[in-house]
Design a protein around this nucleic acid. Structure first.
Lengths: 320, 320
DNA sequence: AAGCACTATGCACAAACGTGCAGAACGGAA
DNA sequence: TTCCGTTCTGCACGTTTGTGCATAGTGCTT
């Protein structure tokens, strides 16, 4: 029965993690086999009953972290990864650690804004469950493009977040960019859109990656049929370094006069900055320029990134 | 070197708990042996770098917990223990779980009041380290008696709390009971005592066991030379059920007119009730009457007790 | 520089753990 | 009731982890 299973899992978890008993001993107390206990414990971990978190005392943290922390005024989590790992493996490990770091921050009644992209997709695959009440996952920016509505890709991400936290999911069914700023203005007055915008306005957490114009593997945004040749030229002319949730900025963090933003469905950067907790996940050193712009723009309160990127972030800064 | 050891422990913990790597894989990344990683991880756990906590979703919790929770309005943690365990083993397991449950509640700048007794002694032996800043451990009541100053016994407990949380320890070097109420009045005007009282007044957490007059193994207080024959008679006449930090109360929670309290050095119950978080740890079903009085008096916000006691607590209540 | 006390390391073994698999138990549907 | 699909259980095996012990390293004293 699923009820006694849950309570068995709870008992087992208490005995295992809080009393240091072996699974064997627990099995005897619960009158079952050791393998069952092993399985009870993994279900306890999966279902978020057991919360494991790592708090590094800020003062004893390694050089790298404190340098970034001081320089950019963000709470930084450097993910240790071997330099020899390839992009995909690195992303996977950063994503897993990001997912588990985010877990403890999510609470009941949270309104969580989530962007989309390969980084968030990876993160969404590693979320650990944690049941909350009355939480909402809200999509930060539209995902449609010239070929598809982008629904499935972005909504898979959203759905995973929703089911991990037992939260309602609010999609944002618009293209990433409108063709004409006027259409955006019109749509922004629609009540269906306004509901989403209002949710975004009251977000308590926002989670996003960052795009970099010059990345080795250009983000979806720059290569996925979202922008045409002309748009890309305009971006280059405006000196854009990268984007967060399809809103662009320059290396120095400024974003005034970037006309493309007027057609973007992502959250206005000034608005984004008002979210209490803004978590930026970055994997891959080639996103460094985009990241630097995002940090200069003060978009993140928390930064989770791989070790190699972290090193590049501080080392290059040493030169300027 | 102890610095790189700490940061290795941090890296190892991240990789093990956040990325699910095996110790073997971690050893290769850190260029060390697997055994060292095993030891790094246990030191990470011991030093409080890794925090494991179990949050039971209140709604799915077992019957027992919700009944107690509802009836007494306390946050209850029932410790699963086999009924066949003896008193000492039960105490040990309750204490271990209590220690680990308390851990996450302790934070920087906390002022933590701690009582003494066999329960607290056991808890103090199982505390997991967690570094905090500017926290203080303050003794709730004097420990001296007719034979000894009680210093060593109580101060061992205090010291363990202090070193687990990296906190300053404030002893309370007075007897548990004065012979004359007048002495107490006089002492309470001493500045050395007032410093302690002021700390107590601003406690954010209080941790205590409970004594029960009719316990099978009477608490130290009733058997340890703290009270003479006459005192014990008076207690019986006043209908006292038990005590918290050597302050007595009746089964219904009342404590008016119990003259012994005027000579006790424990915190006034009304004052105790103003502490935000008041954690009561109970092991052994024979303390049930004392516990019931303490709950009736609203002394605890959190209750940690063994399963057998929990069962007795609700079952007997069914009769009244 | 040498000696000493203490701690950290790796090895090897034993203990503890995870998981594929086959059979048992369960829960509808006919 | 019987059937069938699904879930749960225990076993057996291979993997992963903890730990006593001998050795290597480290820092402090003389």
């Amino acid at each position: 029965m699923t009820l006694s299973r849950h309570s068995d899992a709870l008992r087992a978890a208490q005995m295992y993690y809080l009393q240091d008993l072996t699974m064997d001993a627990i099995a005897r107390e619960l009158r079952t086999s050791r393998s069952t206990v092993s399985r009870l414990l993994s279900s306890a971990r999966e279902s978020g009953l057991v919360q494991i978190q790592i708090r590094n005392p800020l003062d004893t943290g390694p050089e790298l972290e404190s340098m970034i922390r001081l320089q950019y005024k963000v709470d930084v989590h450097v993910v240790p990864v071997l330099d020899t790992l390839n992009e995909a493996e690195t992303l996977d490990r950063v994503a897993m650690q990001a997912a588990r770091t985010i877990g403890p921050l999510v609470d009941s009644n949270a309104i969580i804004g989530v962007a989309w992209g390969s980084t968030l997709s990876a993160v969404s695959r590693h979320l650990t469950r944690k049941i909350t009440h009355d939480s909402v996952i809200v999509q930060l920016n539209g995902a449609g493009n010239m070929q598809t509505t982008g629904i499935t890709y972005a909504s898979d991400i959203m759905r995973r977040f929703g089911s991990a936290y037992g939260a309602r999911v609010e999609q944002f069914p618009v293209p990433a960019f409108f063709d004409h700023a006027a259409t955006k203005t019109a749509m922004w007055n629609e009540r269906s859109v306004q509901r989403v915008l209002e949710l975004q306005a009251s977000m308590s957490i926002a989670i996003f990656g960052v795009g970099s114009v010059d990345a080795d593997y250009p983000s979806h945004v720059y290569a996925g049929g979202y922008l045409d040749e002309e748009d890309l030229d305009v971006l280059a002319d405006s000196g854009v370094a990268g984007d967060v949730a399809t809103v662009f900025f320059r290396a120095d963090g400024s974003s005034d006069g970037i006309t493309l933003n007027e057609r973007s469905t992502g959250p206005d950067l000034a608005r984004l900055r008002q979210v209490r907790r803004r978590i930026c996940v970055v994997s891959g050193a080639s996103k460094i320029n985009g990241l630097r712009g995002a940090l200069a723009a003060g978009l993140a309160t928390d930064l989770i990134l791989d070790e190699a990127s972290a090193r590049r972030l501080v080392s290059l800064d040493g030169l300027t």
